[in-house]
Amino acid sequence: MFGTLSEETEVMVPASKAWALYGTLELAKLVTGKVVEAVEVVEGDGGDGSGSSCLVKLTLEYDVKEEFAANASLVTNRNLLGIMSVANEHLLKSN
């Protein structure tokens, strides 16, 4: 059973500044040990946006073996929310 969970939040910093955190291993350094055990960057090349704020969307993809499909309800977006919270706080403090 394949599924996804996504969260989106507005960050009150320019997209280029948000990407400097989210698009690099700096995000992993920031949240490792606080919210998650490890972060793996799968894809993304970034690109500068414009304006004084931007939207950040994180997606969690999961695949549960059919024999464990009843456990799919245990998948949570808690870590995504934690990552966004820690990252947004960091971005606002360093603005």
Rank of each mutant, 00 (worst) to 15 (best):
E43K: 11
A18S: 11
M1S: 12
V35F: 05
D45L: 07
T76G: 11
S53H: 12
S53N: 10
A38C: 08
T32C: 03
N71D: 15
P14A: 14
S6A: 15
G51H: 06
L74W: 06
Y62D: 09
E37C: 07
E89L: 10
S52R: 08
E67S: 09
E40Q: 08
V41A: 12
L21F: 05
V31K: 01
E7N: 10
K34L: 10
P14D: 07
R78Y: 07
G82L: 02
A38I: 08
V35C: 03
G47E: 02
V75I: 14
S6Q: 10
E89R: 14
L55G: 06
K65G: 08
Y22P: 00
R78L: 03
S16I: 03
S16F: 00
L21D: 02
S50V: 14
E8W: 04
L74S: 13
G51S: 09
V13N: 00
T76D: 15
G82R: 00
A38E: 13
D45H: 11
G49F: 00
A38D: 12
L27W: 03
Y62I: 06
R78I: 01
N71V: 09
L60Y: 02
K34C: 05
K34M: 06
A28M: 09
V42K: 09
V39Y: 05
N77D: 14
E89A: 15
E26I: 00
L74A: 13
A38W: 13
A18M: 08
F68Q: 08
L25D: 14
T32K: 09
V13R: 00
N71Y: 13
S16N: 09
L60Q: 00
D63T: 15
L5N: 01
L27C: 12
T24H: 09
M84S: 03
A72P: 09
V39F: 03
L55E: 06
Y22M: 15
V56Y: 03
M1G: 13
E61P: 01
L91P: 05
S53I: 06
L27Q: 07
V31T: 02
Y62F: 15
S85N: 11
G3P: 03
A28V: 04
V86T: 11
L30D: 09
E89N: 14
G46S: 07
